[in-house]
Amino acid sequence: MSPERAQRVVVTGDGPVLVEGPVEIDLPDGTRVLSQRPVTALCVCRRSARYPICDTSHRTRKKTEESS
């Protein structure tokens, strides 16, 4: 990547924050998560089962009578 090209961070609004990678993510508890993907989707709603990586848990869930 050329030094003139800035990293792009996309705030989607209704979903994760997209960060051009690879990135290291330092968490408050001292753990460090490495993502090698070209773009990483960072969870900002805290609902992801794979936090800090988005797993689409932010999506609307429709209520039904049947429970799984």
Binding site: T12, L18, S35, V39, A41, I53, C54, T56
Partner: peptide, 11 residues
């Protein structure tokens, strides 16, 4: 695919 497609959805 859980992680990759969470990105792909947005793209």
């Amino acid at each position: 695919h859980v992680e990759a497609d969470a990105v792909h959805e947005q793209v």
